[in-house]
Each structure stands twice: as structure tokens, then as C-alpha cells.
Amino acid sequence: MQKIVTFGEIMLRLATPGYLRFIQSNNLTATFGGGEANVAISLANYGIPVEYVTRLPQNDIADWCISELRKYNVATQNIIRGGDRVGIYFLETGAVARPSKVVYDRAGSSIAEITPGMVNWKELLKDSQWFHWTGITPALSQGAADACLEAILTANKLGVIVSCDLNYRKNLWKYGKTASEVMPELVEGCDIILGNEEDAEKVFGIKPEGFKVEHAGGDVDAAVFESVCKQLMKRFPRAKKVIITLRGSINASHNTWGGCLYSDRLYQSSRYDITHIVDRVGGGDSFMGGLIYGLISYPQDDQKALDFAVAASCLKHTIYGDFNLVSIKEVENLMKGDRSGRVVR
């Protein structure tokens, strides 16, 4: 099987223990996380050969990070070494009516200083079947946006499938350009587009036609988003599939979770009621990892691919850290309806 390549920033994650607030905590738990790395680890867990590309400094923290990726069978041989620092994010996990908080310390990170030509995309992608990126990467700097575009155009020339998670983060776009200025050229080269209705509206001005979307209370109607999918496909005609994640937020500890996929028609997933969230960070990335696996494994069955993605990401909400450390069997058991959580002996 040909490999999948993902590209983006991985950060040191420093989280308060349990549900402590920053001001209460006298220690932080250190792990790593980042959208495209999270996707890579999901795919590696499903037995898909995957390589992660980023830029990291020559220091012990970066070596530790690379070691973590290798531990989960992610190839790292084309990670570029250079620059001065690994980006950091701080996490305070919320509960019930108190939302989680994320504070970024990633300015001047090694990948933010990447420039076109640093990665030999032609060589790296020549034996690949899929390239994945997210909207976080071009938000970091002009150089990161240019390197991402360089990868997408190379993948297009080589016939490599390109997927993106729109992942709009308004607080990251600080280098003088907006997502609306940068993202369209990149998304034009994508075959698979994942996002939510907020991403579509904030970046492209696309919103559901004739509906008001309400996420509070947990009841999110998938049919509302068919128009968003159609509008995205019209705007970006290369796209063969558009996928929308559906999160209903009852409170910080209790969400509903599902998704819809539009290709030849609208496919809707089962809806999961997640009444106790252990860690929702990385939930969208676990969906993307499950979706890529599903589309490769069930190429003629969009419904099954969507169901795999939703079940995989449902399980991620029960796992601490950014990475979705679940097996295919565990996902398939949930898809079959086993939601009991009984002890496996």
C-alpha cells in the first residue's frame, strides 16, 4: 500500500491535571499534539503507512517529539531540522458550564519560519497516494502558506489525492493576510474537504440556505448542511466529497457527535450522545484520520467510510491527549452498536 503524507505543526502540549484551572495548578502534564500529526497517528494505528512532515529545531525537546511519533509507527525521516523552537500550547480542561481554554505560545516556531524549497515535495510524494493538510498551517506565516501550496500543486501534478480540514482559527492569522485571502487558492487543489459550517462561513462566506443553525442543546440537523456542501463543491469543482462534522454542545462535558458527507448525494451518520468527555482536543483530527481510512478501505461505500470516521472520533473523546489510540476492531464494534462500555476480559 502506498503511503499517506501529512504536513503541519506539532506542538508541546502542557495541560493542567484533571479539571484544574491554570491559576490552581502547580504542575502541567507534557505531551505533544497538532492536527496533521494527530491524523498521522490515527492512520498508523489502523495499519496505514504514513509519514509526517514538519520543521523542528535541533534540540532535545524536538528529539523527544520525534521519538513520540516514531513510537506510534509514524515515519519521520523527512522532518526538516532548523529554527529555534518547538511551539507550545497550554490547555485547561473545562467541565459542565465552564469551557476549556487553550493558550498558544507558538510565535517564531521552526515551522512558522519554513520557506518554499525546504521540502523536496516531488521526491517525497512520488510514491504516495494521499496528501493531507489543515487550515492551521497556512495561518502560521506566509512561508508556511507558500510551502503548503507548493506541496498541494506537486501532489496535483503527481495524481496524489489531496484532503484538507479547513480548521479556521481566527487568532492564528496574524501575519497580515486573512484566511479568506489565502485559503481559496489552496483549497482549489483539494479532492476531499472537511470542515464545519463555521469554517465555511468565516473563510468563504458560505452558510446554510434558509436555516438558522443552533448548536446549543445538542440537536443538530444534518440535512441543514446539504446546501453548505453543494456550495463548497460549486466553489471548488475539483472536490469530489465534502464532509461536515456535527457537534451539538449541551455543555463542556456532554456533546452529541455526528457527521454528514456529500458526494453523489447526502449521507448522514448515526448520532452519538457523549455524556462524559475525557478530552475533546483532537476530536476533529480523529474524524479525519477515520475518514481517510474509511475512504481507502471502503472505496465504493461512502456511508461506511463516514460511519467509521464518526465512530472513531466518538471513541477519541474518551482518550486523554491529542492522539486517538484506538484499533480498527474497537471502532467497528462501536459501529455495530456496542455502546455498553463493558469490561473486555
Rank of each mutant, 00 (worst) to 15 (best):
V102M: 14
I111R: 04
W130D: 09
K126E: 13
H132L: 01
Y104Q: 05
F131C: 07
I111S: 03
P116T: 02
F131S: 08
K122L: 08
L125Y: 07
F131G: 07
G135T: 13
A112I: 03
D105M: 06
W121M: 05
N120Y: 02
E123Y: 13
K126A: 12
K126S: 13
T134A: 08
W130H: 15
S128W: 08
V119G: 01
V119Q: 02
W133E: 03
H132I: 02
D127M: 08
W130F: 14
I111P: 01
I136R: 04
K122V: 01
K122M: 10
T137S: 11
I114V: 12
N120H: 10
G117Q: 07
S109G: 11
V103I: 15
L125E: 04
H132P: 15
T134S: 13
V103Y: 06
V102E: 12
K126I: 13
G117I: 08
L124M: 14
Y104F: 12
W130C: 10
V102N: 12
A107P: 06
M118C: 06
K122D: 13
V103Q: 09
Q129E: 13
Q129T: 10
G108F: 07
R106I: 01
V119F: 06
G135L: 14
G135W: 15
G108E: 11
N120R: 07
S109K: 11
